[in-house]
Design a protein around this nucleic acid. Structure first.
Length: 761
DNA sequence: CACCCTCGAGTTCA
DNA sequence: CTCGAGGGTG
């Protein structure tokens, strides 16, 4: 990665400024060319804007650098003349200046208010990540539709635009102007985009990197030379596109005083306007709008890359005027990009607790949507092939649902020939056992060495400690690794999970683990070149012998006690772990079942089995049919349970845990199938909890639902009776609103689980 | 047998 | 959170 010279530290001379400006100009024009001619995004928006701004800065400092054809003086790219006919816009389509922080936005507003000489009302709307389009209506009839092009001349896409849903051929109402250009944004709704890509992938066609590319690609399709079937497909695709309008051109004096009223006129004409538009009385309120949608970016049906804030009063638009490139009465606030480019350094294979070998991407650390990402899963070798990424590629990275990093694909243009293909290893990277599919024809490869593959043992031990299983504090990734793969002693305290509940302080104290660098994952070294080690379960202090207790330094010297000596104590973590293990021995049966790592048996299936049978012995004694008769358990899970009990070392786990005092039975359970049906205020009701509910932890909310006799589901469907949503609720809340499921807040939820649904009204 | 609803598994970072 | 796949229902 190259670091740009910091302008604050180094004042450029005319000469260095010219060199830098030339380089920036070349690069920006290249990028524009790629974007507008080939519909490709080589760098993310923020990077592009940074380059453009730096060029502006330089031109500001050295006006002599600013030529006629500087990218700062032109908008967008050249109109594409090869494919679509050029259409001149009656009024120029300007782009907007950008700000990247609330501070910058407020500074912009302050300047506008100073120029206006009074306070201003602002119209706030979402900046759709789509394609700018201008619709030309003459006496109410749609005569042409054009892309932005270079702002002066666009491309004629009228024929395609007629297939879009929601764009009237003839405006509603009367009294339309002789000529008006309606400006807006065309986009692929996220849902439709996902479906489109699924179909493209299924048909072996290339998938689109993002909805904007899909929108642009769809609008630029040509009818010529297509078969009837292909034509139908093209029209179907166009009909999935949507447009939202947000302005007019070539209409000198609209009969309204504000931008918001103008939107009312457009809506009355039957044009689609956004439902997310708000008028803010002050700049601070506008800033609230910006932060609100920054936190809820994915609550909208289309991708948004920011917010556009416009001065609401139209009279002020003329007063504030425009630069050659952008109006002064509007500003675009850009959110940090959700998609960035970074380098794919390597593809490494990890082995999980079930033995599945999963390739993941190791990348140059990069900031995306609020955090630094260096890894992302690639699922399996088919996915690696489907994405077409090579080691060494520059790849497009995004956060799916704003959380999970996902590699979208390579930037093929930036390859230099040194990239190499990923080859799935034939053997387990941790234990060397040859990998094989568990079933004939399975894509996933597994390490068959379940009993002693270090990765699998570590994974299983970690799983036992996880919240969905025995919920043992301290026993997480780090401790699990320390117990199963320490540097010292040579024979680890845990060879399998069978010994977990027989661990003693003497087992824990000697453990030494390798200290690894957080960034590289490589072992750290001491100054003398040896590997740096740490003792997680012991704490060493320097102490004087007991007889020196209470003596001051001079007295100690007189008594001849000069040296302190090392005393080894158990660390807090060691004591906590043993205490937690002790408590875990009597946790509910379903938690123990989950801890056994039986395939397909997670918290829900385990609860069903535990409630029905009441003890592990009863489950073990049950036949396949008896198991499958339990609600929520079918043939496959029944088989998995039966097969699990046929393996010697599995039985060894049960035996040794029981010997150590683990209770594999629900006290007072009357026997298989004898427990009565769940009763309680929520009997027969399904409730989903999402977001952070005040007064409940995530698991606590689930627990409360079950304790009240209700069903705690993990996703929202028609069968859901209530969705309890707190701050931070995402797609589930949206789904609930779509399906018309009743949504309640934390306070109502607390009432619901104690008093029942009747208490809500 | 074809759906829809769920669950389980893998996964990232502060 | 998303994916694939099991379970159950019409």
């Amino acid at each position: 990665m190259t670091v740009a010279p910091n302008p604050e530290l180094e004042a450029p001379t005319l000469e260095t400024a010219k060199a830098e400006a030339d380089e920036l100009t070349t690069r920006i024009l290249e990028l524009r060319d790629a974007y507008y001619e080939r519909n490709e995004v080589l760098v993310d928006d923020a990077e592009y804007d940074r380059m453009l701004r730096r060029l502006e800065e330089l031109e500001h400092a050295f006006p002599e650098l600013q030529g006629q054809d500087s990218p700062t003086q032109t908008v967008g790219g050249r109109a594409q003349t090869t494919l679509f006919a050029p259409v001149p816009h009656a009024e120029r389509m300007l782009s907007l200046d950008n700000v990247f922080s609330v501070e910058e936005f407020l500074a912009w507003a302050e300047r506008a208010e100073r120029l206006a000489g009074r306070s201003i009302g602002y119209l706030c709307e979402l900046k759709i990540d789509g394609l700018a389009l201008s619709l030309r209506y003459e006496r109410g009839r749609l005569t042409s539709a054009a892309t932005r092009g270079d702002g002066v001349v666009g491309e004629d896409v009228t024929a395609n635009v007629r297939y879009l849903t929601g764009i009237p051929d003839r405006l509603a109402g009367t009294g339309h102007p002789e000529l008006v250009e309606v400006r807006g944004e065309v986009f692929f709704p996220l849902e439709a985009f996902r479906e489109l890509n699924e179909r493209q992938a299924a048909a072996g066609e290339r998938v689109f990197a993002n909805p904007r590319n899909a929108a642009s690609g769809s609008l630029r399709q040509k009818e010529e030379g297509k078969t009837d079937a292909a034509l139908e497909l093209m029209h179907a695709r166009l009909s999935r596109l949507r447009m939202l309008v947000h302005g007019v051109g070539a209409w000198p004096s609209p009969p309204v005083a504000t931008q918001s009223e103008l939107y009312g006129v457009l809506a009355a004409w039957g044009l689609p306007t956004s439902t997310h538009v708000e008028v803010a009385k002050t700049a601070t309120r506008a800033a609230d709008y910006i932060t609100h949608y920054g936190d809820n970016r994915n609550s909208v049906e289309h991708e948004i890359d920011g917010v556009v804030v416009k001065v609401d009063e139209l009279a002020l638009h003329d007063e504030l005027g425009a630069t050659s490139r952008a109006p002064r009465w509007a500003i675009a606030f850009k959110y940090p990009p959700e998609q960035v480019n970074t380098r794919l350094l390597d593809i490494v294979v990890s082995v999980g607790r079930t033995g599945r070998a999963t390739p993941f991407a190791v990348m140059e650390p990069v900031h995306v949507a609020g955090s630094t990402v260096r890894q992302a899963t690639l699922h399996n070798q088919d996915v690696v092939r489907a994405k077409g990424v090579l080691i060494g590629d520059t790849v497009v990275l995004r956060k799916a649902g704003d959380v999970i990093p996902e590699v979208l694909g390579p930037v093929v243009e930036l390859r230099d020939g040194t990239e190499r293909e990923f080859v799935m290893p034939a053997a387990c990277p941790e234990c060397g056992t040859p990998l094989a599919p568990s079933k004939e024809g399975d894509v996933d490869l597994r390490c068959p060495n379940a009993k002693s593959c270090p990765a699998q043992v570590r994974g299983r031990v970690e799983h036992i400690g996880s919240r969905g299983a025995l919920d043992i504090e301290v026993l997480g990734e780090v401790s699990a690794a320390a117990l199963t793969q320490p540097e010292v002693p040579a024979v680890p305290p845990l060879v399998t999970e069978a010994g977990l509940f027989s661990l003693t302080l003497d087992d824990l104290l000697p453990i030494e683990v390798v200290v690894r660098d957080a960034e590289t994952g490589l072992p750290k070294e001491e100054d003398d070149g040896t590997v740096k080690l740490r003792t997680p379960f012991q704490r060493v202090t320097q102490e004087y012998p007991p007889e020196a207790e209470g003596l001051d330094p001079a007295a100690r010297r007189r008594a001849g006690i000069t040296k302190s000596h090392r005393v080894v104590h158990p660390s807090a973590a060691a004591l906590k772990l043993l205490d937690e293990l002790e408590k875990a021995k009597t946790k509910p049966l379903w938690r123990l079942l989950v801890s056994l790592n039986i395939r397909h048996v997670g918290p829900v299936a385990a609860r069903a089995l535990a409630d029905w049978f009441g003890s592990l012995d009863a489950i073990r004694a049950a036949s396949r049919d008896e198991l499958a008769a339990v609600d929520g358990v079918g043939g496959i899970i029944a088989d998995a349970v039966i097969e699990w009990f046929l393996v010697d070392w599995h039985l060894d786990i049960v035996r040794r845990w029981a010997d150590a005092g683990v209770q594999f039975a629900t006290p007072g359970h009357p026997g298989p199938g004898q427990a009565g049906d769940a009763e309680g205020v929520l009997a027969g009701l399904t409730v989903v909890a999402t977001g952070s509910l005040e007064g409940f932890t995530r698991d606590g909310a689930q627990e409360a639902i079950i304790r009240a006799g209700g069903k705690a589901a993990s996703s929202v469907s028609k069968k859901t009776d209530f969705v309890a949503a707190g701050p931070g609720a995402g797609s589930k809340l949206q789904k609930a609103e779509e399906l018309g499921v009743r949504v309640i807040d934390a306070a109502q939820f607390a009432l619901l689980v104690t008093e029942g649904p009747a208490a809500l009204d």
